[in-house]
Simulated assay, not measured.
Amino acid sequence: MLLHDQYYFNDEKDLGDIGSLEWRFGEGEVLSMYLLSDGERVGADLFPSDTPAPFEIEPNVTCSWKRENLLADLSATHLENTKICAVEGIL
């Protein structure tokens, strides 16, 4: 399963802002990937990532993150439970 944190502004999905990725595979194994503070490099961890807490900018103006299945958004649910043998990245 491939999950990601999706940003919402006043409960409306903002497609321009996607947070950390979390790969779940095997028997409860996790690989979390996230952007480092320099905005250029990616970090990784073997623990689940934390979804940021929602907050209000002003009354009735909220910002929140929700954990979602990225494969469902990409219409790629057929990839769930598929064995991935290699991953290639392009920089």
Results as ranks from 00 to 15, higher is better:
residue 55 F to Q: 02
residue 23 W to E: 10
residue 37 S to Y: 06
residue 18 I to Q: 07
residue 59 P to E: 15
residue 28 G to C: 07
residue 3 L to Q: 04
residue 81 N to K: 07
residue 79 L to K: 05
residue 66 K to N: 05
residue 48 P to K: 13
residue 49 S to A: 11
residue 9 F to Y: 09
residue 20 S to A: 06
residue 26 G to M: 02
residue 85 C to A: 14
residue 50 D to Q: 10
residue 31 L to T: 13
residue 12 E to N: 03
residue 6 Q to L: 08
residue 72 A to C: 04
residue 58 E to Q: 07
residue 38 D to W: 03
residue 2 L to F: 08
residue 73 D to H: 13
residue 22 E to Q: 15
residue 65 W to C: 01
residue 57 I to T: 12
residue 88 E to N: 08
residue 31 L to R: 15
residue 41 R to S: 14
residue 63 C to N: 10
residue 56 E to A: 13
residue 71 L to G: 01
residue 51 T to I: 14
residue 20 S to P: 01
residue 54 P to W: 12
residue 87 V to P: 00
residue 60 N to M: 03
residue 46 L to R: 13
residue 75 S to R: 14
residue 12 E to G: 00
residue 5 D to E: 08
residue 26 G to D: 02
residue 13 K to S: 02
residue 9 F to W: 06
residue 74 L to R: 10
residue 13 K to Y: 09
residue 64 S to T: 04
residue 88 E to T: 14
residue 1 M to R: 14
residue 54 P to K: 15
residue 65 W to L: 03
residue 7 Y to W: 14
residue 86 A to D: 13
residue 85 C to H: 09
residue 4 H to L: 09
residue 38 D to A: 00
residue 62 T to L: 04
residue 44 A to G: 01
residue 17 D to F: 10
residue 40 E to V: 10
residue 65 W to Y: 11
residue 19 G to L: 03
residue 56 E to C: 03
residue 73 D to Y: 10
residue 81 N to V: 00
residue 89 G to Y: 12
residue 58 E to N: 04
residue 51 T to C: 15
residue 79 L to V: 03
residue 59 P to F: 03
residue 71 L to A: 09
residue 75 S to F: 09
residue 63 C to P: 00
residue 31 L to V: 15
residue 89 G to S: 13
residue 39 G to H: 03
residue 34 Y to C: 01
residue 83 K to I: 11
residue 79 L to H: 02
residue 42 V to P: 06
residue 69 N to H: 10
residue 70 L to N: 01
residue 60 N to A: 10
